[in-house]
């Protein structure tokens, strides 16, 4: 059934464009509709300050979700990203505190992210170990390793210039939001129009066909993971520079939030389908829901249950819609 849907979507580019556009459009409508619904209940929700805080505080999730979406489109998964973000934030913060030039501290997170993820990509692609096993193992290694090395000592006294997330472009647009938009647009264009970007869909959708078209599957997967590492590094920088202290521990359940954003954004876990624009909208939607639940006084005990229902509803609705599209 799903295979048929994918095939049908793949063969007709015009229809595929339509399907994807409407997926993103629906998420955008959900983001706006939710804002209005909550705004009617409590107008303070619509204050520019609150909307920008919601974006600002969660931009790192959207940035990481862009990389995760690529990984999932290529037919893989990554459970280690939350732990990696914790490790990268610590590396960058430690360098900054110990007097390394700020730019070096920033670059270190990006480079280390690429190295770790590319390494995982090599194991997955060339040694053919399933991504879930490799990244599950890496999660354990990073998490335990981080505590072993740092002893969980918080990083304080960070230099002011380190705080990338505090920069406001043109005195208006906060840097995290800018980065989120920039990364999303660049990645979306690259995935849609470049040969290497399209290769990701090919590998995820039909590895055999991709091979016949002359696309190297292992090389594509390593590339995807390396890029994912780059985005994880960027996300870690936003995460690390938002506050004055870095916790030196692994942020709890972060990987789950990131995967959820990708999946709700319309990336098929079966590979081959999805865009990063959808995942960014989804990350915004999830953040907005978390904030909205506080605004409309949902008892905090029920928040997680409501989130679960929302994910379920989004995913089921999306699948039913795709099925209808394929049937039409």
């Amino acid at each position: 059934m799903t295979a048929m849907t994918l095939a049908g979507v793949g063969t007709d580019p015009r229809r595929r464009l339509k399907v994807l556009a409407s997926q993103e459009a629906l998420l955008a409508i959900a983001v706006i509709g939710l804002a209005i619904a909550v705004g009617l209940n409590n107008p303070r929700f619509l204050a520019a300050r609150n909307l920008s805080d919601v974006l600002l505080g969660n931009a790192y999730i959207a940035v990481a979700a862009v990389g995760m979406s690529m990984v999932i489109v290529s037919g893989n998964i990554d459970i280690s990203v939350g732990a990696l973000i914790g490790v990268l934030a610590t590396i960058s913060g430690t360098l900054a505190v110990n007097g390394a030039p700020i730019v070096v501290a920033w670059l270190a997170a990006l480079v280390a992210g690429v190295v770790v993820m590319a390494f995982q990509g090599v194991i997955i692609a060339y040694l053919r170990i399933p991504a879930i096993v490799v990244t599950l193992g890496m999660l354990s290694i990073l998490k335990g390793g981080l505590i072993s090395v740092t002893g969980g000592k918080w990083i304080t006294d960070l230099p002011d210039s380190f705080h990338l997330a505090d920069i406001e472009l043109f005195g208006l647009l906060p840097f995290p939001v800018f980065l989120m938009i920039l990364v999303t647009i660049l990645a979306a264009l690259w995935m849609r129009y470049s040969a290497s970007g399209r290769a990701i869909y090919a590998v995820g959708g039909n590895a055999e066909a991709a091979r016949l078209c002359g696309i190297s599957q292992p090389r594509t997967i390593v590339m995807v993971f390396a890029l994912h590492g780059l985005f994880a590094g960027a996300a870690a920088l936003l995460y690390a520079t938002q506050l004055r202290v870095i916790q030196s521990t692994v942020p709890p359940n972060l990987e789950l939030t990131i995967i959820t954003a990708s999946v709700v954004g319309g990336v098929s876990i079966l590979g081959g389908v999805g865009t990063v624009v959808g995942s960014t909208f989804a990350a915004v939607l999830i953040a907005e829901i978390a904030s909205a639940l506080v605004f409309i006084d949902v008892s905090p005990y029920w928040i997680r249950a409501v989130q679960g229902v929302l994910i379920l509803v989004t995913v089921i609705a999306d699948i039913l819609r795709r099925r209808r599209m394929a049937g039409a």
């Binding site: 939710l34 509803v313 999306d318």
Partner: peptide, 12 residues
């Protein structure tokens, strides 16, 4: 999906 969201909201 809009319907679903609306329903979830009502529930919430």
């Amino acid at each position: 999906m809009k319907l679903g969201l609306a329903a979830a909201f009502l529930g919430a």
